Simulated scan of single mutants.
Amino acid sequence: MEPNYVNGRIGEKIKDLRNRNGLTQQELADRAELTKGYISQLERGQVAPSVVTLLDLIECLGTTPSEFFRETEEEHVVYSEEDFFEKIDEAGNSIQWIVPNAQQNQMEPLLVVLQPKEALAEDKPHEGEEFGYVISGHIQLRLGGNVYMVKAGESFYFSANKKHSIANTGATRAKLIWVSTPPTF
């Protein structure tokens, strides 16, 4: 008998849970009062369990029907400009959150555009790290009592345990990728 998609998915989930619980096919069969051959066929999608049998197996595997049938959302990997959120201040500086809801993640990547002679507000010391890559123009990075000039094609990386800020001291706009971990913006 050729396995169908639904039977195959149920079989895969049974096998995965059985393996995570460290059970052999025989041990699961014994717990559910079934045969090892039936468990083998079930895991390969060759048979469809009755509702009662499936509920027994789910219980024997230490989970619930709602957990068993919950489909995990496919991870969103690629984002386009339509997904970005942008904040522009009165001077024309912009911050784009280029990964929506990144503040829920461990990193928060931003695309920052600073107009000439403009700066972002100083960031107070916090846990985590900061990384940046200057795409065009150049910026002045203040970190504690030190000042660094970072030009196009250069990057910066530091522990965020000191006051820090960036400014565009040049005559042309500066564009950079800035990543904070954990998210602070």
Score class of each variant (00 low, 15 high):
Asp123Met: 15
Ala91Ser: 11
Gln41His: 08
Arg20Ala: 14
Ile98Glu: 00
Glu90Tyr: 05
Glu2Gly: 06
Leu55Ser: 07
Glu129Arg: 08
Gln103Gly: 02
Asp123Ala: 14
Ala48Phe: 02
Phe85Leu: 08
Arg173Gly: 05
Leu55Ala: 12
Thr172Leu: 11
Gly37Phe: 09
Glu127Ile: 12
Ser136Asp: 13
Leu54Glu: 07
Asn168Val: 02
Gly92Glu: 03
Lys151Phe: 04
Phe84Lys: 12
Gly92Leu: 04
Tyr157Thr: 06
Ala152Cys: 06
Glu82Met: 00
Val99Thr: 05
Glu67Gly: 06
Lys151Ile: 04
Asn4Met: 03
Leu55Gly: 03
Asn161His: 13
Asp30Thr: 07
Phe131Ala: 11
Leu61Tyr: 03
Leu176Lys: 00
Leu42Val: 06
Trp178Leu: 10
Phe69Ala: 04
Val134Asn: 04
Val134Tyr: 04
Asp16Ala: 14
Pro182Cys: 02
Glu130Ala: 04
Gly11Ala: 11
Ala121Tyr: 09
Leu17Trp: 11
Met107Phe: 08
Ile139Trp: 00
Gln96Ala: 02
Leu110Ile: 05
Val47Tyr: 03
Val112Ile: 15
Gln26Ala: 14
His164Met: 15
Arg44Gln: 13
Glu81Arg: 14
Asp56Ser: 14
Gln25Glu: 11
Met107Val: 07
Ile39Arg: 02
Asn161Val: 08
Asn105Asp: 06
Asn146Ala: 09
Leu55Asp: 09
Ala121Pro: 11
Phe185Ala: 10
Cys60Asp: 08
Thr72Gln: 14
Thr64Tyr: 11
Glu27Asp: 05
Asn93Asp: 06
His126Arg: 15
Pro183Cys: 07
His126Gln: 14
Gln41Arg: 07
Gln104Asn: 06
